[in-house]
Design a protein around this nucleic acid. Sequence first.
DNA 1: GTACCTAAGCTAT
DNA 2: AATAGCTTAGGTA
Length: 355
Amino acid sequence: MPSDVHLNGHIFSTTNAPSTNMSKRQITSFFAPVASKKQRFDLTSKLPPSTHPNYPHPITCLPPALVFSSRQGADVNDGGSSSNTAATDEIAPLVFNGKPDLDMLHYQPFLHRSLAQELYTFLRRELPFYRVTYSIKRDGTDTVVNTPRYTSLFGVDAMCIFHPETGTLLDAEKKLPIKYAYPGCNPRPIPQCLLPLLEYTEARTNSSYNFLLINYYSNGADSIAFHSDDESFLGENPTIASLTLGSTRDFVMKHKTEPSQKLSLPLASGDLVLMKGTTQPRWLHSVPKRKHSGPRINITFRFVKTRKGTENYYRYNVGTGPVYRWDEATGEMKVWERGKEEAVSEVDASVKKET
DNA sequence: GTACCTAAGCTAT
DNA sequence: AATAGCTTAGGTA
């Protein structure tokens, strides 16, 4: 696999200035390396919002002060003159491999706490979220389930890439438009604001990912039940990274067939859990309700191999319901409708000019 | 000890 | 990839 394959599926360039004759370029030329890895980690120029036909709204670019690199981590001890928020001191992870079939690393933290906090605030404010409802057959009768958390999702399976300019889906190998449809879902590329984090996470965990699933647990009543990420479209022993931003929540694990094998660890802001090997096929995990917990964002990084995975993930994490966006005035997620936010945007714009 | 309360764990649906 | 309802655990006066 080429070293820069993780970039191929997504709209991304290191410059704000659009090429004047892009439409005349060969499609393949969009995929040529345009910057060294170091340059890509060190983005400092302000980029335009990310747009795509399947985004409900443009998604704000990452503030240049949020830098992901170990080098910036060293700059934090310069007496405070740097305006950058350092990524990390790269503390060695705690290894969990003493229990049967468990192969897991806990980076505590993975991101510097202050960077995690800023990233948390930014993502909650700027990303579109969903509160998916769906029906299941429970004891023979259809029951409506309200997913007990807000979700958002970006990515497409490894069979496809997004055209860097138009955003249409192309065959990953042939670089030509795909001939099949994705019934019931509208895949969308990872927005620029998540790409530096993606690349940084790929480099430090030594894995590639093509899907980012974002969960927002607004309080301790939001949760996720015991499950495994063991679907066939992830492969046999998938590597999955899970980053916590915001409030601490317990992450509870139990072995599928050995009831005495249990594990609970508090995940704090900036912590990352890397699950690999037989962890998914042999263990279940959950984030149970906790009466007094505050709001938390969780980002999971996965590599989806096939179309079925894309369809499954968009069904359960985007769905067909309304878009929710963070409302600073009320401090909660609020149903968002296109075109009804203009009055608020005016205020936002004036605030931005002042800062 | 014992009554009472709350949070967390367990299980059938 | 959930939830209601019940049971258990643990704190406190």
